[in-house]
Simulated assay, not measured.
Amino acid sequence: MKAAPIVNIDGLYLEDTLVDDTFSGVVPFYSNMHHGILDVLTTTENVTQPEGEAPNDSESNISGYIIGIPVPPGLFRPCFDLASWNAYESAVSAAQNSYHEALSDWQALPKELRGDMPVRETPLQPALWIEGLTPEEIEELTKPQPEEPTEVDRIGTEMVARELEVIELRQQNEAQGAQIVGLELRLLSLENS
């Protein structure tokens, strides 16, 4: 078993699901409305319906796709480019048809005239996973956020504030003690005179 990404109908990544190790390609999954209750039916077979056709249920709608291509690292909000996938699939199909035609033509020739056997050329697969966020959204996500103080930081700040209050009270105490001593000295000097 391996994890395969699930995307919505716009290609935005939703979550992973477990599929067979041999799973590849892009397979739609459908939602059926039965008495107002949404049931999501998923298929993990590598069989796709023809374009525009749904399973036998006339109330079925494509809800998303199971993707057999892993999400590359480094994307903030992965988005599968369904248009590029469809174009790639069309190019692969056209290349396959072209190869089969060339092979049939080659095989139809007498052995003496055949030459080299046609080579099947498969188009390169484009990068199908793209960034689903705009550069502005990425900048907003990646800008430094003010750090929330931890419980230890908060307690430490409170302790420093209490220490400062204690020092201030001690200084006030010393000043008042000095005043009292001064008054007692004046009183003593008045009594002695």
Rank of each mutant, 00 (worst) to 15 (best):
S104N: 10
L75D: 12
I67K: 02
P55K: 03
E139S: 12
S31C: 04
L18W: 06
A87S: 08
D16G: 03
V71M: 01
A83F: 00
N32H: 13
D81L: 01
E174G: 08
G11I: 08
T48V: 11
T150I: 02
Y30H: 15
N192F: 00
R154F: 10
A83H: 00
P123Y: 03
L41V: 14
P118W: 13
D105F: 04
Y65T: 00
T43Q: 08
D10I: 04
Q125K: 12
E139G: 10
I6K: 08
P149C: 06
A91Q: 12
I167N: 02
A175H: 06
S63Q: 08
Y99P: 06
L185Q: 15
N32Q: 09
L183N: 14
I66V: 15
I69E: 12
N8Y: 05
L169G: 10
E101G: 07
D116K: 05
N61H: 14
S90R: 09
S193W: 05
V47N: 08
S58I: 11
G177E: 12
R77T: 08
R120M: 14
K111E: 15
R162E: 15
E174F: 10
I138W: 09
E131M: 06
L133W: 09
S98N: 13
I138G: 11
V119S: 11
A83W: 05
W106P: 11
A4M: 02
T42K: 00
R154W: 02
A108W: 11
D81S: 03
L169V: 11
P50N: 01
Q145K: 07
H35K: 01
E15Y: 04
L128C: 01
P110L: 10
R162W: 09
S63T: 14
A161Y: 09
R186V: 09
G177L: 11
R170W: 06
P50W: 01
I66P: 04
G11F: 03
N86G: 06
G68E: 14
S31W: 05
W85M: 12
E139Q: 12
I37G: 01
R162N: 14
G25K: 00
L133P: 08
P146D: 06
V160I: 14
P70N: 00
P72R: 09
P70A: 00
N192P: 00
L169D: 14
A175M: 07
T122D: 10
D153W: 05
A54H: 15
D105N: 12
E163S: 01
D16E: 10
E59W: 02
R186F: 11
G64K: 01
G156R: 10
L188R: 08
E121T: 09
P144Q: 12
D20S: 13
S104L: 10
E131A: 10
V26F: 12
V119I: 10
G74F: 00
N173F: 04
I9Y: 01
L12C: 02
E112Q: 13
H34W: 03
L75M: 12
L18M: 04
L188I: 05
E136D: 13
A3H: 06
V47F: 11
N173V: 07
F80P: 05
P118Y: 14
P72K: 03
T142D: 13
Y88I: 02
N46D: 14
G132W: 04
L12I: 10
I67C: 07
L164W: 02
E89I: 12
E101N: 13
G177T: 15
